[in-house]
Design a protein around this nucleic acid. Sequence first.
RNA 1: GGGGAUGUGGCGGAACUGGCAGACGCGAAGGUCUCAAAAACCUUUGGGAUAACCUCUCGUGUGGGUUCGAUUCCCACCAUCCCCACCA
Length: 867
Amino acid sequence: MKEKYFPQEIEQKWQRRWAEEKTFEVMEDPSREKFYCLEMLAYTSGRAHVGHMSNYLIGDALAWYKRQRGYNVIHPFGWDAFGQPAETAAIKEGTDPEKFTRGAIEYMKWQLQKMGISYDWSREIATCDPEYYKWNQWFFTRMFERGMLYRKLAPVNWCPKEDISLSNEQASGGQCWRCGTAVIQKQLMQWFARITDYAEELLNDLDKLEGGWPERVITQQRNWIGRSRGAQVEFRVAEMAETITVFTTRIDTIYGANAIILAPEHPLVQKTVEGKPNRDEVLAFADELIREKRGASVEELEKKGTFTGAYAINPFNQEQLPIWIANFVLIEYGTGAIMAVPSGDERDFEFSRKYDLPFRQIKLTEDGREIWPEEMEAGDESWTVTVNTGQWSGLRSEEANRLMTEFAEANGFGRGAITYKLRDWGISRQRYWGTPVPMIHCPKDGLVPVPDEQLPVVLPKNVNLKVEGGSPLDHVPEFVNVECPKCKGPARRDTDTMDTFVDSNWYYFRYCDPRNDSAPFDTEKVAYWLPVDQYIGGIEHAVLHLIYTRYWCKVMRDLGLVRFDEPISRLLTQGMIVKETYWCPEHEWLFPEQVTDDRHCTVCGRPVEIGRTEKMSKSKKNAVDPIEMIKIYGADALRLFVLFAGPPEKDKEWSDTGVEGASRYLQRVWRVAYRWQGRVKDAAPDDSVLRGELKDYQRTLRRRVHQIIRAITDNFEERLHLNTCISSLMELTNEIYAFEQAVEKNGEVTAADVALAREAIEALIHMLAPFSSHIAEEMWESYGHAESLARARWPEFNAELAREEEFEVAVQVNGKLRSRLFARPESTDDDLKRAALGDEKVQAATAGKDVVRVIVIPRKLVNIVVK
RNA sequence: GGGGAUGUGGCGGAACUGGCAGACGCGAAGGUCUCAAAAACCUUUGGGAUAACCUCUCGUGUGGGUUCGAUUCCCACCAUCCCCACCA
């Protein structure tokens, strides 16, 4: 052990050693309990900043801890390598997406290895590898065969100028992100997964995740699935052979209906207006509404509609209701048609007022007062009483709802129904850089899946990405033109690629068996490792990824590949690293080095605004490259700081001086370890010297060591507030320094001192390993241990040794702190009471008053209540 | 509009089920060492009152409430942020 701490040297040594000795590579071992520690796979954006690292560091700390607790810990990593941004970057840099992505993986992997994160790299996967996406295709064909996938016409955002499809982000504000052209909606045949078939199960199984998943994620998923119980009611269209079905959660309000309103996209709009004098007008208006809706936010969209000229008949009272179309009725929810009840719904109220539709009151409060929507409280329906509603008048709405649904059912014009907000999942993308859909369109045999033995359908290389019209793959004849697997006649390949969420659905199953070439994974291996014990990732995935992957697990279960319902037991949504930003009115975002000390732009000299602290990102120019930090302070200091900055689930603010502080702390640890290293190595471990009578400072150190082991262990097991674990380590270090001072004062170093220092320092080293692994390994080795800390057992705390010998008890009078006293652990409540009442300051504070009550909280506090 | 989160010193943050608010770190001030500086080590560091100590007093976004006791629980409000959003 050198006298001085050289982080880069040590880090290189241990990174090499870990790789050579395969320290973090694991195998299934039924005799040991497993722990699956998983961080979300990395999107291959080019380079990782410290914000990305914080995710991996949380996982690494836990992986280290669990390893030292004796678990068989699988801690894998991989790359989310497909997707639109790689295409964009490739076009910009004049390369192809594959080259760009491989380059990004290489660099980012190097960054992660420099951080010394304890991954089992032998299990690494990249979703753009044909060996991986082959199984996306295999799943696709299995699901197609079982009717879990289907095709339908669906709108895509389309730029008419460039003739390409756009994602929602690329079409935000209704404009093409590249050329600014107004985006149109184009109807294309697209692939959908029937996730709605699993809506009920996805909702119910959320209960199984209680406790392991953050409440807010569960709530978000519940709202996303959005189950509503209500009824579908059929309205005959007058003088036509059509019926309009509406969905309502409040069939009891049907006597208050004043119109039927269709979404402008509703298929019956055409038929309803056919032959009517205003036909062309209405259809044109419907088109306008559809166009306006795109990209507009709710507040700025005024409710608008028009009367079609047709009428529908209320099946309860045979009243004729005008059929309208309006922009606030959504085609994608329920049946795309509603009955408008102004007395029951604020939107209907607003609409009816605007267009002067008739009102009929059907609700009263218990005391007979009429209620209008303005005064209704959302969700509060308990106080309404139904009136003017035929035979159901006078019932409470809940009961009326039930009885009227039954009535509709009995008379054949309605039924109870459940509706979800969750939509079937559109998985088609008209892009190049993704998994090709393994389907063939044959003029004779229709849709034919690519047979297993022909998988993978490999993505062709050297494809022109800047094509006009359709997907780039449409323009690759050798890819498109194939033989039909059934009739061997000429056929066309499907040229859609899959949404990258398909890739991320099951990657962590593949980690269990990453090189399997005959199946996506071996069921038994997955049965050993899964479910994931701890998943760590950003809150932004609360709904999409985390619902899709739950869905996929259930699909795989139904395909007979796995035997459990939920793939992830515990979820931690980590906060972001934020850093302050600089904004120049002329040059927009600036790097910190572009700003002078007195906050002016170095380029134009204008005053610079110190912007809000924001999530680290390239575009805001506030990203910190971990490599830069490693060069100065070493990876261990960076790791320590990132985890120390705040609790994992909260946003944390970046601070340069904070890293420096972490670095100083590590040097402080190093120095104390160095000072004792010689004595510790010379003395054989011998606990017998500790059996004799210990001095105060010795007992104090020992007690603190065991208290801190307990605190850190508990924290890892329960709250995972790693920042306070690090505080505890610092306290332990301070404690050892204080101990050294006492030893020095004592004049000589006894055998007991050495044994105690060893115990304390080795505990410190041990518990430092999850945070700053390299320095911990180095010190551990220099203390005479040949094997990696990764195989050493986590220190056990001794409750007896951790016990306080004396407690400081606060003494309050009427809740105000007046004094303190010291008590032995064995003192009774009565002892404390007597001591408190006898205390001088207490007597001064209570003089002339009557003691009404004395409250004693053992070992903590005495409160004397006086009057 | 709905759902959720957060608000504590100059700063990041502690305080686990109501029980001594401010652990730990950053920053700052002073000291030791040094020719000097850096580093290191040792003190001090929420505000106010007091000559320093003792001590007193105020203090966890604001205003109420429950309680012997509230950063913690309840109600109302303010501020900031996030997610969803005309979901019938």
